[in-house]
Simulated scan of single mutants.
Amino acid sequence: MTLQLIINNSKINKRKNPITCRANCELFDSITNECGVHDIHDPDNPKIASRCGDIIFKEENEDQDITPWERPLEYEFYNEEFENEDEMDEVFNEFKGEPISSEDSTYPLQPDVPAKRDDALWYVAPNEEFGCWIVNKSPQKFLSVSDISKAKQGWNEKVYKSPYPLHDHNSSLPLSSRMVWYVDSEGYGQYALLCAGKISMISHPRPSNWME
């Protein structure tokens, strides 16, 4: 079973043409001036779009000033973590959860939801622009690196050897406190989703034919 989860990850404050529901999302109906999923009162407000986890970019806007590091992540179930259907149900129930408002959020300095596992540590980027959990399964000792160009690359441009992330996950607010920088046994890190104490979804599974 594969699940693809598209996350709004636009850096709206740094764009000449900020992403909005009306201008950029396929779910917005220009005739009724309503979103097909949510009750939105201000579809031209970029902050609304930045907090939405359901935005689907219109085809003509797919390449709108979005660098590879800002593009939406796609997640697949990390099936090794699930032992039965009850665990999968728990993940879905927690993932739906209660909505988090920007007024009540403590992100990125503190997570809005707990990790529910002992080996997860909360990390805040030096510039305090983003945060995430870190789960490190590698026995290796890492050399500190300051940017992605100096890190050893893996099978994807967003997969590299580093004990902490060197790029922002750019997730919507409801997902930001569930993001985890997951470092595998060989030292390669990438973003995944942490839910119900499980590494439940992973963005770039290792290809079976990939060799270091």
Score class of each variant (00 low, 15 high):
residue 1 M to N: 07
residue 3 L to F: 14
residue 4 Q to A: 11
residue 5 L to P: 01
residue 20 T to V: 08
residue 23 A to G: 14
residue 24 N to K: 04
residue 25 C to R: 02
residue 28 F to T: 15
residue 31 I to N: 15
residue 32 T to V: 15
residue 32 T to N: 15
residue 37 V to I: 13
residue 39 D to P: 08
residue 44 D to L: 13
residue 47 K to Y: 13
residue 48 I to W: 12
residue 48 I to A: 04
residue 51 R to H: 15
residue 54 D to R: 09
residue 55 I to S: 01
residue 57 F to R: 15
residue 62 E to K: 14
residue 67 T to Y: 06
residue 80 E to P: 01
residue 82 F to R: 07
residue 87 E to T: 09
residue 90 E to F: 11
residue 91 V to P: 01
residue 92 F to Q: 13
residue 92 F to A: 15
residue 98 E to M: 15
residue 100 I to E: 06
residue 101 S to R: 05
residue 102 S to H: 08
residue 106 T to D: 13
residue 108 P to W: 02
residue 109 L to C: 03
residue 109 L to H: 05
residue 109 L to V: 05
residue 112 D to P: 02
residue 112 D to Q: 04
residue 120 A to V: 00
residue 124 V to A: 08
residue 126 P to V: 00
residue 127 N to G: 06
residue 129 E to P: 09
residue 134 I to R: 06
residue 136 N to W: 02
residue 136 N to H: 02
residue 138 S to E: 04
residue 139 P to D: 01
residue 141 K to G: 08
residue 143 L to F: 12
residue 147 D to C: 05
residue 149 S to I: 00
residue 155 W to G: 03
residue 158 K to Q: 09
residue 159 V to C: 11
residue 160 Y to K: 04
residue 162 S to H: 06
residue 162 S to L: 05
residue 167 H to S: 12
residue 169 H to A: 07
residue 175 L to R: 07
residue 177 S to M: 07
residue 182 Y to T: 05
residue 184 D to T: 00
residue 188 Y to P: 02
residue 189 G to L: 00
residue 190 Q to M: 12
residue 191 Y to R: 03
residue 196 A to L: 07
residue 196 A to M: 06
residue 198 K to T: 12
residue 198 K to L: 10
residue 203 S to T: 13
residue 206 R to I: 11
residue 206 R to L: 12
residue 208 S to I: 14
residue 212 E to P: 04
